[in-house]
Amino acid sequence: MIDDLYSARILTLAANLPHAGRLPAPDGTGERIAKLCGSRATVDVTLDDQGRVVGFAQDVKACALGQAAAGVLGQSVIGASGEEIADARDAMVAMLKSGGDGPVGRFEDLRLLRQVADYPARHASTLVAVEATLEAVNHALAERTRLAGAA
């Protein structure tokens, strides 16, 4: 059963992390750490005028499952809104914890991680990149609001 969890597709996603690194001048940064295993994701974003991600970089130190989720995220996040990322996160949590179908649309490939539902100790590491990305977008939007209020 553990072999099914670490399929060739998941291992390929984990090994080929798009947008690895950090942005030199991000609009927002987010970081999440899975306390149980220590998996960590730091994400930088820049947003366009509509609040959509136009720049993205991720520094992820996680197990293959966390890396695979970050791989899907890196392939799909450019052009996404905070709402789309939040919807993907919520659908992923439902998929892992309560048998939900998983994300749809641009983040549908996160469904490849459906089998992680059977391994609760791996849930947090699988979510670190998505949650860090949402945090980065929310920080960028909050900073934009703060600056607009100061003007």
Rank of each mutant, 00 (worst) to 15 (best):
S7G: 01
L113P: 02
A20D: 11
D48S: 07
S76F: 00
T46Y: 05
A25F: 13
L134R: 08
A57F: 06
V60L: 01
A94D: 15
R40I: 13
E108K: 11
D90S: 09
I85Y: 00
R40S: 05
L73M: 09
T126P: 02
G51I: 09
R122T: 02
K61T: 11
D59H: 02
L127E: 06
M1L: 14
E84N: 01
A8V: 12
H123C: 14
P26I: 08
Y6V: 10
D4P: 09
R40N: 11
G21C: 09
I33G: 05
G71V: 06
L96H: 02
M1A: 14
A136V: 01
D49E: 15
G71F: 02
H123D: 07
H19Y: 10
V77C: 05
A62Q: 03
P18H: 08
Y119F: 14
L127C: 04
G28Q: 10
L112P: 03
A57H: 01
G149S: 10
R146Q: 11
T46G: 13
D44E: 04
M95V: 03
A129T: 02
Q58E: 09
A64S: 08
G105Q: 08
D49A: 15
S39E: 06
T29R: 10
T46W: 01
T126Q: 08
L113C: 11
A25S: 15
N16W: 10
T12V: 14
H123N: 14
D59K: 00
D101N: 12
C63V: 07
L96Q: 07
V60H: 04
L13W: 09
P18I: 12
L110I: 07
D90T: 11
G66T: 03
K97F: 11
S7M: 06
A14K: 04
L36I: 15
L17P: 00
Q75K: 13
D49N: 15
T42A: 13
N138T: 12
T12N: 14
D90M: 12
D87H: 14
Q115K: 14
S39W: 02
A34N: 04
G51V: 07
D59R: 04
D3Y: 15
E108M: 10
L36V: 15
A70K: 05
A121H: 13
V130I: 15
L47F: 06
P24K: 13
A69D: 04
T46F: 07
D48H: 07
P103I: 01
R40A: 04
G38F: 02
D3Q: 10
A20L: 08
M92L: 13
G71W: 07
N138P: 01
A8I: 11
A117Y: 09
Q75L: 13
G99V: 12
I10L: 11
D44C: 07
A124D: 15
Q58F: 00
